[in-house]
């Protein structure tokens, strides 16, 4: 049985960019998100701001590439520039900014943007991950 392909710290390339497929945000998304989390939209017709942030990671999984072997999601530094409206079609763009080797794993910092159908950046910021090393497993 072979393991699925994954990306370890050693194979992360600083500067690499990815863009996800787009998704149209519907009232159903907003209702389900609000129901699960208890976090509601500030007004009718808008999505809760954190919902867009949550989509950023979910959309990332739709890129056909071996996923990062994330040990821990360490932190977020995030800015919200424009509201996400029901009916907007958004995609996520990311770029690897920094990789820093630690003893048994490595830190990877990615810049993420949530972009709407008109190309406007709604939200953006940095995600910091702790990523497994190949050598630590052998």
């Amino acid at each position: 049985m072979s393991s699925p392909a994954v990306t370890y710290f050693e194979d992360v390339e600083v500067g690499s960019r990815h863009e996800t497929p787009a998704m149209t945000v519907t009232q159903a998304h907003v209702n389900m998100y609000a129901g699960v989390t208890g976090d509601h939209a500030p007004e009718a017709g808008l999505a809760p701001p954190l919902f867009a942030l949550c989509l950023s990671t979910g959309l990332g999984w739709r890129i056909a590439r071996p996923p990062l072997v994330v040990i821990a999601f360490m932190g977020i530094d995030w800015k919200i520039e424009r509201p996400l409206r029901v009916g907007d079609t958004v995609r996520s763009r990311s770029q690897t900014m920094v990789k820093r080797s630690m003893r048994e794993a490595g830190v990877v910092v990615e810049e993420h943007q949530i972009v709407d159908q008109g190309g406007d950046v709604l939200q953006h910021g940095r995600f910091t991950f702790l990523v497994a090393k190949k050598e630590a497993l052998t």
């Binding site: 998100y33 609000a34 699960v36 989390t37 208890g38 976090d39 509601h40 809760p48 954190l50 919902f51 942030l53 949550c54 990671t57 999601f73 977020i76």
Partner: peptide, 14 residues
């Protein structure tokens, strides 16, 4: 999910 925790705390506080 870390972002589930972030979203839940946002809802809880209000």
């Amino acid at each position: 999910h870390g972002l589930l925790g972030l979203s839940i705390q946002s809802g809880l506080l209000t």
